[in-house]
């Protein structure tokens, strides 16, 4: 079957099997390998992308289900060579080690800040609770998100 959607702002149309998972569509068909996968059961969250502006686990969405919708991946965050503050925050606060969960974490964190520009530690922890990081122990991820929130708040006031 044919599927059309918008990925990182650009329209794409591809021939796919009905069963193709969105994560494989992005990785294998579009070669957007920033989105990862780490389990079979929607538990790890390394595959999180946005669909119509909301974080979803792309291993549990069929590519066909994304037809007609807007998908955004980690590759779409940097704009005109400027990093998203969440990306910068993860570097500044050592919010990553092996980098495998990082794209999913960043996409979820970006969505959180869009809805809640000043989240508490608890709110950040709940937001990322469907995503597993085996390296960082999460404290530095929480710091990274708070760094981005503080940076964006400073941008607004200045």
């Amino acid at each position: 079957m044919q599927v059309s959607m918008t990925v990182n702002g650009a329209p794409v149309t591809e021939e796919i099997e009905g069963r193709m998972l969105l994560v494989h569509f992005l990785r294998d068909q579009l070669r957007l390998t920033g989105t990862h996968w780490g389990c079979d059961t929607s538990n790890c969250g390394t595959c999180v992308v946005w669909m119509d502006g909301e974080p979803v686990k792309s291993c549990t969405v069929l590519a066909a289900m994304a037809g007609g919708r807007e998908v955004r991946t980690v590759e779409g965050l940097e704009q005109d060579g400027v990093l998203d503050p969440v990306q910068q925050g993860f570097m500044e606060c050592h919010g990553l080690q092996c980098g495998f969960c990082t794209p999913g974490m960043i996409m979820t964190a970006r969505a959180l800040l869009d809805r809640n520009p000043d989240p508490s530690d608890g709110e950040i922890r709940e937001a990322i609770s469907g995503q597993i990081c085996r390296c960082t122990g999460y404290t530095t991820i929480v710091r990274s998100v708070k760094w981005a929130a503080a940076y964006e708040a400073a941008q607004v006031t200045s």
Binding site: S42, G45, V48, E54, P55, V56, K57, T60, V61, T108, E126, A127, S129, G130, Q131
Partner: peptide, 12 residues
Amino acid sequence: EHVIADPVVRNR
């Protein structure tokens, strides 16, 4: 709803 799955799953 705070204890069902996780927030990303709850989006769908």
